[in-house]
Structure formats: C-alpha cells, structure tokens
C-alpha cells in the first residue's frame, strides 16, 4: 500500500490479491447477497484507489480497507432501509466464527445463537464479527470502527457474554 500511495500503480494488483478474498467474505457474510457484496467490494477498491493519497504513512492497510468496506456496507444497508440486524446471516456468521459451540450445536441451539446475535447492539455485533469472525486484532478492529482497543475489547466481551460463548480457542 505504501508503494501504491506513492504512485506505483503496479502495486494495485498485489494489494488486490491480499485483500479481495477477505473483504469479499466479510461483505458476503454481512449482506447475505452475493451481487451486493461484489458491488460493494468493487466500490471499496475504487475508494481505496481514489483515497490512496490520504492513506497514512506506515499505516495498517487491513483496518483501513475494512473501515472503507464497512462504511460502504452501512450506507448500502441504510439505503435499502434495512436494519443491519435483519441483513445479517447470523447462522453463517456463527459457523464462520472460531466457535466450537456453534460447530457442534444442533439446529435448535444455532437458531438460539442466531436470535441472540440479532438482538445484540450493532457495535457489540460488529466487535464480535471483526474480532471473532474476521480474525482482526483488537487494535485493528478498533481502528476499523474508530474506537479505542479497550472499548473494542469490552464490546467483544459483552458480545461473548450475551451469546454465551468463550473468548477464543484457548478459553472456550
């Protein structure tokens, strides 16, 4: 990204290769709509391209890209007049999470978890999604939403408590 921000257009392709699959997965899980996700992915890369000059020197590209994708996602959901809760494919989200409970859960348990996830406040669900599903560090996830890492840790913790699941591999 550093080379790209400085004007090396050839650096776009490696940037794309490194980010496209992750961002596409994030957008697909969040929209449950492949066409919309691909459209948002394209817009994300175009915005990154147009805004490359404002990318902070030695900044972290992953949170930056996720933040742009998330902003576009929220705008798209708002435009469709759908609440993010309604748009989230919670079951897929839970299965994608590093979540042993969800992997072994029966249909009924998974439905219950999905219902709980849908009821979470938006910022708690986002914290869960970015940290648990997308695998971002607390600092990266905090940068995506513009919060402090401590706030992000607290939000993720509240999501885990509300969902009744462990914090990760080690403490599940």
């Amino acid at each position: 990204m550093e080379r790209y921000a400085q004007g090396d257009d050839a650096a776009f392709e490696p940037l794309y290769e490194g980010l496209a699959a992750r961002l596409r997965g994030f957008l697909r899980r969040s929209t449950n709509d492949a066409a919309l996700a691909d459209d948002l992915l394209q817009q994300t890369f175009l915005r990154m391209h147009r805004g490359r000059a404002s990318f902070e020197r030695n900044g972290a590209v992953i949170p930056w890209a996720y933040a742009i994708a998330r902003r576009l996602l929220l705008d798209a959901l708002r435009t469709r007049r759908r609440k993010p809760e309604a748009a989230l494919p919670n079951e897929e989200l839970l299965r994608s999470a590093d979540n042993p409970e969800a992997r072994v859960a029966g249909r009924e348990d998974l439905d219950q978890l999905s219902a709980k996830l849908a009821k979470l406040p938006e910022e708690h669900r986002t914290a869960f999604e970015l940290v648990r599903v997308e695998g971002l560090s607390l600092a990266e996830a905090a940068a995506v939403v513009g919060a402090t890492p401590t706030a992000m840790k607290m939000r993720a913790h509240r999501a885990y408590v509300a969902l009744g699941i462990g914090h990760g591999k080690g403490d599940a």
Partner: peptide, 14 residues
C-alpha cells in the same frame, strides 16, 4: 476492476 482503477484519476500522496 483493474481497468476501471486505471481509468479513475487519483492523486498520489506527494
């Protein structure tokens, strides 16, 4: 996408 990016003007950091 690469073609569209090439056609879209975008200033460099400098």
């Amino acid at each position: 996408l690469v073609a569209e990016v090439k056609q879209t003007p975008s200033p460099t950091r400098s």
